Simulated assay, not measured.
Amino acid sequence: MPFPYDPAAQPELLDRREGPYGEVALRRRGERYEIIANGCFLMDTSDGRSERLLVSAALDALPAGTAGHLLIGGLGVGFSLAEAAADPRPARITVLEREQAVIDWHTVAPAPLAPFAGAGHADPRVRLVQDDLLHHLRTTCERYHALCLDIDNGPDWTVTDANGGLYGFAGLTVLERVLAPGGVLAVWSASAAPVFEERLRARFPQVTRLDVAVETERGEPDVVYLASREA
């Protein structure tokens, strides 16, 4: 349900909360909703193609018949969840979101972001978990066939400083640990991240970069990085 980008429209603040990771806010600009974290624009509902691609490309890259458990890091406005729920391949879909406010904007009336998640909130395969992604990755015993991360504006533009460690060599070690054999790691970025791409190529035999053109004043394409141990 994308809406056109209208930079002239004045934003209306719908909700703003202070949490353990700082301030998070929901704004409406015309028909578009925006999530702002610590004063930094994070995402909106104007498009969603790259967020959907994050999931579909990861599932397509898996060996046939192995799309068992999908993890989405970051609920956001819901585009990735909508894509996952529309795909019959995952047997289980876990969505991690650390901000209770974002979960509430999807699940508590009037739930303005719920429509953008498609059938995700009603899908019996879906489990929505409030947790920090890094904490979950370090403590879980689960193994994921597809690990789709969209918790920042990219490896070079993190929402909080602590997230930066996820994209270094130590973070990649943590990510590798929770991947099932033949699993695929997918990472969303608001722009190309060449240093991160080099790290991926140093750890994974198979790395692919997918660019998605965006129709905003930013100009740079969104990027989805795919990495797997399947050469």
Rank of each mutant, 00 (worst) to 15 (best):
I72A: 09
W188H: 13
R89K: 04
L70Q: 08
D222V: 01
T107G: 11
P88V: 03
E23I: 13
R27E: 15
R98T: 01
G65C: 10
D132A: 06
G165M: 04
L81V: 07
A180I: 08
T173M: 12
V195C: 07
G73A: 13
E215W: 00
T140H: 09
G154F: 00
Q206D: 15
H135E: 13
A86K: 05
Q10F: 11
G22F: 01
L210W: 02
L185K: 04
L134C: 12
T173C: 08
Y5W: 12
D161V: 08
G78Y: 06
G182H: 07
I151W: 00
N153I: 02
G48F: 05
P155V: 00
E197P: 03
I36C: 03
R209Y: 10
L179H: 01
D152L: 02
E99T: 04
V223C: 14
G164E: 14
H69A: 14
I36S: 02
I93K: 05
V184G: 09
E51A: 12
E220Q: 13
Y21M: 09
L59N: 07
R199S: 09
W105L: 13
R203V: 03
H106Q: 10
P115S: 13
E215T: 13
Q130D: 08
N38A: 05
L14R: 14
V214M: 11
Y5I: 07
D60F: 03
R199F: 04
R203W: 00
L166N: 05
D87A: 11
R127Q: 12
G120Q: 10
P221A: 10
G73I: 00
L59T: 01
V55W: 06
V174T: 15
F3I: 09
V207I: 03
L133K: 03
L53Q: 11
R199C: 03
R17K: 15
T140Q: 07
L26N: 06
H121C: 13
P205S: 12
L147S: 09
V95H: 07
P115R: 08
E83M: 14
L137Q: 05
E51Q: 12
R138W: 06
V102W: 06
V178L: 10
A9W: 00
A109W: 05
A8W: 11
V126K: 07
L42G: 05
L210F: 03
R199W: 06
D15M: 13
G30D: 15
H69D: 14
P4I: 09
A8C: 07
E51N: 11
A190W: 01
L179I: 04
A57W: 04
R203E: 06
R201V: 06
A91S: 15
S46L: 11
S228M: 03
I103G: 08
A111G: 08
L226Q: 02
E31S: 15
G39R: 09
R29A: 12
R143Y: 11
A202S: 13
H136R: 12
P194M: 02
E197V: 04
H145E: 14
V184Y: 10
T208H: 11
T139I: 00
D15R: 15
L175I: 03
L128I: 12
P124V: 06
T45F: 11
P221L: 07
E198D: 13
G65D: 09
A227G: 04
P124E: 08
V129I: 14
G154Y: 00
E51L: 12
V95L: 08
Y21R: 11
L13P: 01
